[in-house]
């Protein structure tokens, strides 16, 4: 199954999920995207930059340090919650500069979605 097929499968499994993208945070480029409706490129670029902000900046690392086990570490999962959507960010288990970004409706079960997305990302990473 191709990477895009796996992303499609993840998105299809959650009616509240509008898009799933694979992003390279070092270059700020979205590598591939599975989406119901096309999102503007600037929107995807901004999400890629947000992933980098959440996962790789010193400030985010320090905020994450609020957790006992978060000291001297960086987060691997993040969410941004706005009135119209929830965006879920996961860092690749294989490449620390790669992330999976999902744009979801407000009614998505974030716990279930994150579990499912994590499994999908593990499979994608194993095949890369």
């Amino acid at each position: 199954m191709s990477t895009l097929d796996q992303m499609d499968e993840l998105r299809d499994g959650f009616p509240g999920c509008r898009a799933v993208a694979l992003a390279d945070m070092s270059s700020g480029i979205v590598l591939c995207v599975s989406e119901i409706e096309k999102h503007p490129q600037e929107r995807l670029d901004a999400l890629c930059a947000t992933a980098n902000e959440l996962f790789n900046t010193a400030a985010a690392g320090k905020v994450f340090g609020a957790l006992k086990n978060g000291e001297n570490a960086n987060p691997d999962q993040g969410m941004t919650i706005t009135p119209s959507e929830t965006c879920i960010f996961l860092r690749s288990p294989a490449d620390p500069m790669e992330s999976l970004v999902a744009i979801c409706n407000t009614d998505v079960d974030v716990t279930l979605f994150t579990q499912s997305a994590r499994r999908t990302f593990d499979k994608i990473a194993a095949e890369e």
């Binding site: 901004a46 902000e53 985010a60 987060p75 999962q77 969410m79 941004t80 579990q115």
Partner: peptide
């Protein structure tokens, strides 16, 4: 840092950070 990429959410925001794993 978030303001740079999340325009329109400067006044009201909710963000979470978590570790690897479920």
């Amino acid at each position: 840092g978030l303001n740079k990429h999340m325009q329109g959410s400067e006044a009201t925001r909710c963000v979470t950070l978590g570790p690897q794993g479920e």
